[in-house]
Simulated scan of single mutants.
Amino acid sequence: MLSAPWRRAASALRGRPRSRAVHAAGPRSAPDTPGSGQASPPADFDTALLDVLVCPLSKKPLRYEVSTNELINEELGIAYPVIDGIPNMIPQAARMIHQSKQQEEKEQ
């Protein structure tokens, strides 16, 4: 049997949400449904996934940056966005962080 972080990672990689228990009254509606007046906060990234996620280009471990909500590969200088708690590990979606820092320094 897989440990909890491995189950979450396998579920995330398959692209299916983990199963949820359904109560006798039926499934609850999400708070961000249209007309409810409430927007749910964005899903947090599960940092336990850092144990199994690596950069698809270098195969090196990644670091999660809370302030930018990105997975950072310091060696290559790239940042993968995390959208609704799901890391977007497509290299074309990553941004170069070294170029961003250099541009900021030039502007100052």
Rank of each mutant, 00 (worst) to 15 (best):
K106M: 06
M1C: 04
D32V: 11
E65C: 07
W6C: 05
Q108D: 12
P56G: 03
A9D: 05
L50G: 00
L76T: 00
R63S: 13
T33E: 14
P41K: 10
Q103P: 00
Y64R: 08
P34W: 09
S29G: 07
D32P: 06
W6N: 03
D84H: 06
A79H: 09
P87H: 02
E105D: 13
H23C: 09
E105Q: 13
L57S: 12
A43K: 11
A48H: 07
V22Y: 04
R8Y: 05
R8K: 15
P34V: 12
E104K: 12
R8W: 03
W6Q: 10
A4M: 06
P91N: 12
D32Q: 06
V66H: 11
S58G: 08
R63Y: 04
Q108G: 08
P41N: 07
P87R: 00
A25L: 08
I78Q: 00
K59N: 03
A12K: 01
S3A: 10
P17K: 02
P61L: 02
V66N: 08
K101L: 13
I83C: 04
A10N: 11
R16Q: 14
R8E: 14
P31E: 10
H23G: 05
V82K: 04
P87F: 00
R63V: 15
R18G: 14
S36L: 05
P56Y: 02
R20E: 15
W6Y: 10
E105T: 13
A9Y: 12
L50E: 02
R7K: 14
V22H: 09
P91W: 03
K59R: 09
P87L: 00
R7D: 03
I78L: 12
L71S: 03
E104M: 04
R28T: 14
A93C: 13
A4V: 03
G37D: 11
A93T: 09
A39N: 09
L62V: 11
P41A: 14
L2W: 08
A21P: 00
P61Q: 06
A79I: 01
Q102S: 13
D84A: 12
L71F: 01
S36Y: 11
K106Q: 13
I72R: 06
S100C: 01
A4D: 15
A10D: 10
A39S: 10
G35H: 07
L76K: 01
S3M: 09
C55L: 02
P56I: 01
I72L: 14
A79Y: 01
C55A: 08
D46A: 14
V66I: 12
L62T: 05
N69Q: 15
R7M: 04
L62N: 04
L57E: 15
P81L: 02
I97D: 02
